[in-house]
Every structure is written in structure tokens, then in C-alpha cells.
């Protein structure tokens, strides 16, 4: 549908002055502004103003329905400087402004990836300065004595596994040091659906049902994913309409990731069958309910070398140290 706006549309407590809608552009479902995005599942077009409100409201709902943040919490936001963590920090800094006593600290992990990390580090520093958020930077060199590029020589195909283990550890240590009560990451709806499919492909039921977001394990800081109901495209659009979207380089190791294959497969399917990603996530929740109280996961032990909680004799980081001779 294409039409030109002619009257003031009022939504909530703010009014939107309509502009002439350019020819051939659909209009927003909530006002007479030109649409910037289409939501296939709800079959709605939204303008920039209503997209921003809609995204922030859905994140607020996710946080409240899942009890992700409470008064007095200090939330450590994993800030890579990419679009998802940028959106997460922007949204949380707005939402937490009205949350009594809650505070934010942004943590950036510099893995040491030449030609990739410098731009995103600059973006992270610039954003935290603009938002006035406490910012900590930790490096793989501090954690394990070398940068990722050096660690991966001859092991490039294991890049995402090695990086993921070390990044998780670096983020957890930095969050503890910053006095955080939880860790928020920028995983979006697409990421979550991809993870469900990847774990199903691997036949990894324990990982499929594992959740650290509810604070059920006292051994770990709760990890929360406030963007888990927002599609990746809406996050990029949310940033673009606020002039916050930056085109950043792609990680050179992405080509080795199973996730890259699953992303292509799943986005092709979602495009033809809107709602597929949401259905996958709902399937995971159903399996979680069936598994509640069932010993799907191995009980937690303490790593015999570093004392961190883990499922076996040695934690993944210490196993990696042995593999890398670090």
C-alpha cells in the first residue's frame, strides 16, 4: 500500500508530523510516515520512529518477562563494537535510565585479529564515551599470553571454537573484576535460532537445553540476552535510522565457522517461510520444559587446575592451554 500522509498521527505520548511519502514507498502501520522496514511475521511496515519504539519495547518486555535485570544490578555488556552489541548498549543505556540503582559497564575483548579488531575497538570506545558508560578492555594477550592470530597458526579451522572459549573466559573474568551481577550479550533472534539448529545438527542435547540466563547456577554470573527476540535485520535497521550503523570489516576467520553455513541455510528458509526462526526457538523452549528436572547435563565440578566450575575434570580453558602449550 502506498499513500501520502496528510494528518498528524498520535501514538503514545508523542506525535509524529507526517511528511510527503516518496512515490512507491509503503507507509508505516502506525502513522503516515514512509516505512523503513517490513516485519514479515506480523505483516507490518514501520517507519523509523515506530521501529525504534517497537524494538525498545520488545527488549523491555524480554527483560521483564525473563527477570533478566533487577533494581541495583550492575550489568556487564559484552561490547565488540559490532552492530548487535552496539544496539544492546544503546538500548540498555536508555532503559536502565529509569531502573532504580541499575548500572552498566561495557567490556570489550581484544582478541588480537589484524585488520579487523582496530575498527571495532574504535567504534566501541567512541560509543561508550558518547553514552558515558564505564568501559573496560581486556586482551587475549593478557589472558593467555598471545594474540589470536598467533595462537591460530596452523589451526585456522578451529578459530571460532578457540576464540569462543577464550572470549567467554575473558568476558567473565572482566565482569567479575568490574563487580558485575550479570553479563549481557548481543545475541539476537537469528543467532539464537542458528544455535538451536547447530546443536540439533551436532546431537548435543545438553547444550541445546543449557541456559545460564536465569541465574539457576550459582557457579556462574547469569548471562542474559535482551535482544533474543529481535531479528538481526531489525537491529541493523534500528541503528541505521538513528545514524548509529557503521559498516565494519568482517572477521577473517568467519569462513571457517559452521555458523556461517547454518546462517545461510536458515535465512534462506526464513525468507521463504517467515516465522521459522521463532518456531525453532519455541521448540527449544518446549524441549527445555520436558527436560526440567531431568539430569541432561553432567553435574558441575571444579577444574583441577584453575578451580573454575566445569562439567569435567578440566575446564575448557585449561584444556586449551594444554593444547596450545600455554
Amino acid at each position: 500500500m502506498t499513500r501520502s500522509g496528510s494528518s498528524v498521527s498520535r501514538t503514545g505520548d508523542r506525535s509524529v508530523e507526517p511528511r510527503a511519502v516518496p512515490a512507491g514507498v509503503p507507509v508505516c502501520a502506525c502513522c503516515a510516515e514512509p516505512a523503513v522496514v517490513y516485519q514479515p511475521v506480523t505483516r507490518r511496515h514501520l517507519c523509523g520512529t515506530h521501529l525504534v519504539r517497537d524494538v525498545e519495547e520488545r527488549v523491555r518486555t524480554t527483560i521483564q518477562e525473563n527477570g533478566q535485570i533487577h533494581a541495583g544490578d550492575r550489568v556487564a555488556v559484552g561490547l565488540s563494537g559490532g552492530k548487535d552489541s552496539t544496539a544492546l548498549l544503546v538500548i540498555l543505556s536508555r532503559l536502565l535510565a529509569t531502573w532504580p540503582g541499575a548500572s552498566l559497564v561495557a567490556i570489550t575483548v581484544d582478541e588480537g585479529i589484524a585488520g579487523y579488531r582496530a575498527d571495532t575497538m574504535r567504534a566501541a570506545e567512541s560509543l561508550t564515551q558518547r553514552l558515558g558508560v564505564d568501559h573496560r578492555i581486556v586482551t587475549f594477550r593478557d589472558l593467555i599470553g598471545d594474540d589470536l592470530d598467533t595462537l591460530l597458526v596452523g589451526r585456522e579451522t578451529q578459530a571460532c571454537t578457540i576464540c569462543g572459549i577464550l572470549r567467554k573466559k575473558a568476558l567473565a573474568d572482566a565482569a567479575q573484576a568490574a563487580g558485575a551481577t550479570s553479563i549481557a550479550t548481543g545475541h539476537n533472534l537469528d543467532d539464537e535460532a542458528q544455535s538451536v539448529l547447530m546443536n540439533a545438527f551436532r546431537g548435543d542435547l545438553p547444550r541445546l537445553v543449557r541456559t545460564t540466563g536465569t541465574g539457576t547456577s550459582e557457579a556462574f554470573l547469569p548471562r542474559i540476552k535482551p535482544l533474543m527476540s529481535i531479528p538481526e535485520k531489525e537491529i541493523a535497521s534500528y541503528l541505521f535510522v538513528q545514524d548509529l550503523f557503521s559498516v565494519l570489516p568482517e572477521c577473517p576467520y568467519t569462513k571457517y565457522a559452521l555458523r556461517a553455513e547454518v546462517r545461510t541455510l536458515l535465512s534462506d528458509y526464513e525468507c521463504r517461510h517467515p516465522g521459522t526462526m521463532q518456531h525453532l526457538i519455541e521448540s527449544k523452549k518446549t524441549i527445555e520444559r520436558y527436560c526440567a528436572g531431568t539430569p541432561v547435563m553432567e553435574p558441575l565440578h571444579l577444574c583441577r587446575e584453575c578451580g573454575d566450575p566445569c562439567s569435567g575434570d578440566l575446564c575448557q580453558v585449561c584444556r586449551l592451554r594444554h593444547l596450545l602449550e600455554k
Binding site: V25, V36, H45, G48, S237, V241
Partner: peptide
């Protein structure tokens, strides 16, 4: 995402 003359547009835009 796609912009037309600097403005974001949905897939249905002409």
C-alpha cells in the same frame, strides 16, 4: 539492508 538516496527502504518499495 537497503537505502534509497540515503534513506532506508523496505523490500516492497519501488
Amino acid at each position: 539492508i537497503v537505502s534509497r538516496n540515503g534513506k532506508l527502504v523496505p523490500e516492497q518499495a519501488t
